[in-house]
Design a protein around this nucleic acid. Structure first.
Lengths: 272, 272
DNA sequence: TACCGGGCTGAACATGCGTTCAGTCGAGTG
DNA sequence: CACTCGACTGAACGCATGTTCAGCCCGGTA
């Protein structure tokens, strides 16, 4: 398989050590090039991975950087640097920057699929499936969030799969009395998923207000507790009194119809 | 060497009136340039605005394009084109692209502030304040969502203000029995806001699955109904059975401690 | 041995970007 | 009138980007 992946070349060429991929230019830009390269083996199971081909290194570095800085925020040069290769090699392997992006999408999707089936095969509970997939590798989740923000067919398909899975899990949980039935389970699943991912995307605010960083560092326990407690409360006890809300809605509509001209479709806004 | 342009400019180009700032080139670019220019007066009250200075046109065009394509997805040339001016004029008025961005931030924030105070002064209910601010001008909301994705101190401050407002409104609603108390109202407000905005950011999925486009077009009533009904159900009736969940959590923890070695930081139990 | 082909590189190229420059125009002012 | 000043412009500049090119190194093959 991957024997020496041409690092003999690197060593021979410029007699520095194997890990020394120095930027030839000044490279005043600070952010974590070798950091990205060092975290590349987080991907799979906990094996002590063989020294990772250049192509793999490029892929993982790209995913890491994309997740942290966004797709437009990273150049191929930076990716190449983080992977200890030259920029043209990135093009050589993936055709173009867009090709690299597509490869990242495929890789991440595959990774999540694998994690899911593994977790399911081990007989985990649904919520632990999600929990595991999430905790397993945060940088993949970060990448996913970026992909969600960008949109596109790949992520659409992924989301659809998530909805289907969620539907299955929820119906199972319904049978054992864990979750209550909904008037429209699919709609509920969609909205709940969106809310969850939305909170993840906006985790910056979550960190500022609850002190928990869901995506960046190892989350501190008390912050995580605060977040979990809040979400749990939101999901186990109602926020609003349905009858009072209906009353208010009716009164409001009446007030509107007498204040303004009638016939307009009334607004109904649930949020405070 | 550059005399001849002055002539073409002076003589041929502009025999029309002072207010005619036509784009000299063919303007082949497709996306709604004059649309952006035409929707500039949505901002304030319904006055028939005077023909809008170039600076204003640049600002509103920038907000519109930023909201639709994202900050990195728009060039100053495109903004200038949409505002029917030259690119250097944008720089002339705002110093730089970053300066324009900052001006947009300030403008949008001011606009929301004004809408809010107006709505409050008119004695609207809290939920209608939000509703009005939202419905008033969707493109401002789209801009805001982009800002949320990017992060930054400006949007942080905005979000903080939102939290404070929400807290006030919620406590009022609590007093009239509309909203149930929370163990931590602030945390609840933060998470609920995040969930709401998150759904807005991911409105693409909402549209695909529920058929409602919250941000793009005029939302179709049935789709909006479906979304509102789902959110309302989520907020008026619990999703999960708290006792069953606590039981499951305990059993799960037990299974974990006997399966794996103890002492490891196991699943946090968010209080039973 | 000679040759091939793929991994890989530095240098160079083309393009598009934000910005600068030098200048025109017209309204305002003495 | 002359003079100033700000809005505004086309041309051009500098720079960073994604990509191409010509060629190197080296294991495999005949």
């Amino acid at each position: 398989m991957t024997y020496q992946y041409g690092r003999s070349r690197g060593a021979g060429l410029r007699g520095s050590g194997p890990g020394s991929h120095r930027a030839p230019d000044g490279q005043a830009d600070g952010h974590s090039t070798q950091d990205a390269a060092s975290t590349h083996n987080v991907t799979g199971t906990g094996n002590t991975s063989p020294p990772a081909s250049a192509k793999e290194r490029i892929l993982t570095a790209a995913i890491d950087l994309y997740g942290r800085l966004g797709f437009d925020g990273v150049t191929v040069k930076e990716i190449a640097q983080a992977a200890s290769v030259s920029a043209p090699l990135v093009i050589h392997h993936f055709g173009s920057k867009a090709g690299l992006r597509a490869a990242c999408d495929a890789y991440v999707a595959e990774q999540f699929r694998r994690t899911k089936t593994e977790s399911v095969r081990r007989g985990n509970l649904p919520r632990n499936v999600a929990h595991e997939a999430m905790a397993a590798n945060r940088h993949l989740v970060k990448y996913l969030m970026r992909a969600f923000m960008e949109g596109g067919e790949t992520i659409d398909a992924f989301f659809d799969q998530l909805v289907e899975d969620s539907l299955v899990y929820t119906s199972e949980a319904e049978e054992i009395g864990l979750v209550y039935p909904s008037r429209n389970p699919r709609h509920r699943a969609v909205v709940m998923l969106l809310q969850s991912f939305g909170s993840l995307i906006l985790h910056r605010q979550l960190e500022r207000h609850l002190g928990v960083s869901l995506l960046d560092d190892e989350p501190n326990p008390e912050g995580l507790d605060a977040y979990m407690a809040t979400v749990l409360e939101l999901y186990t006890q109602p926020v609003m009194n349905a009858e009072a809300f209906a009353e208010l809605l009716a009164a409001d509509a009446e007030a509107h119809t007498e204040a303004t001209e009638p016939g307009s479709t009334q607004d109904r806004s649930p949020r405070s």
